[in-house]
Simulated assay, not measured.
Amino acid sequence: MEAIWEYRDLIFIKGGLLTVEVAVYSLILATIFGLLGSWAKLSKNKVARAGADGYTTIIRGIPDLVLMLLIFFQGQILLNRFGESTGLWTFVEIDPMTAGVFTIAFIMGAYYTETFRGAFLSIPSGQIEAATACGMSRPLIFRRIIWPQLVRYALPSFTNNWLVQLKTTALVSLIGLQDIVYNANAIGRKLREPFTFLFAALVFFLFLTAVSEIALRLLERRYSAGIRRA
């Protein structure tokens, strides 16, 4: 415990904050991917539906670690080759933070796509038709009818996906990003106490999970308040 307290700034403050940043940034981007993917799957356009189906099928069939390494290493090579062939740029360097956030968001976006698609299909179509018949505009229908129910139906699956995504952030340590796992492992190997410091990282992730579950349960209670009163 004394060793953990001595390196608390490097592990919990620097590494922990970086882990939270990766999780939050990737969540925002993954939500955007998920909304776009669900819109494409529900679209009448065959090309959009085929693209969304291919996206979710391929991503869910590739290990997260493989995709992380491919984007970080091979992605940079492909970008530089494309820049040289077109003359648009000479050299592009993908930093670990960008690669980690984008990869995690790209992976989880496939799962959020199914979450939002299922939530949208759970909304009774008669409500949207009735709102249209009453003369409500599309933005108003989305804000007053679709969005509140979309959040309520999506939250259980969204919570599970977010908790998985939170654990997936540990993969960024493999591409050199100094998150809590990277720092805990490096210090533990240096002091020959790997279990002690990795256990500290484990406790940190459990803490984030507990806080996330409490926050999302409160959010679910808020959006289900009317239903429960009924």
Results as ranks from 00 to 15, higher is better:
Arg229Glu: 07
Phe158Asn: 05
Asp179Ala: 02
Val211Cys: 10
Val211Ile: 10
Lys46Ala: 02
Leu150Arg: 12
Thr113Phe: 03
Leu206Gln: 14
Lys167Trp: 10
Ile141Pro: 03
Asp9Phe: 11
Ile13Lys: 13
Val101Pro: 04
Arg117His: 01
Pro156Glu: 09
Asn183Ile: 00
Thr168His: 14
Phe102Pro: 06
Leu198Phe: 08
Ile180Gln: 13
Met1Ile: 13
Ser85Asn: 13
Phe106Cys: 01
Gln149Arg: 09
Ala230Phe: 12
Ser122Cys: 02
Lys46Leu: 08
Leu216Asp: 10
Ala133Glu: 06
Phe120Arg: 14
Ala225Ile: 06
Asp179His: 04
Leu18Trp: 07
Ile11Met: 02
Pro148Ala: 09
Ala131Arg: 00
Leu206Pro: 15
Ala131Asp: 03
Gly176Glu: 01
Ile4Thr: 07
Ala184Phe: 07
Glu84Asp: 02
Leu219Ala: 10
Leu216Gln: 08
Thr57Gln: 04
Arg221Phe: 02
Gly109Gln: 01
Ala48Asn: 04
Ile11Arg: 12
Arg60Asn: 06
Phe106Trp: 09
Val101Phe: 01
Phe33Gln: 11
Ser85Glu: 07
Leu29Gln: 11
Lys167Pro: 09
Gly176Tyr: 04
Ser125Pro: 11
Glu6Arg: 14
Ala154Lys: 05
Phe199Tyr: 15
Glu93His: 01
Leu18Gln: 11
Leu219Gln: 02
Gly109Thr: 00
Glu21Val: 15
Ile13Trp: 15
Ala201Lys: 10
Ile28Val: 14
Phe195Gln: 10
Pro124Leu: 02
Met68Asn: 00
Leu78Gln: 03
Ile59Phe: 09
Asp9Met: 11
Arg143Asp: 08
Ala170Pro: 07
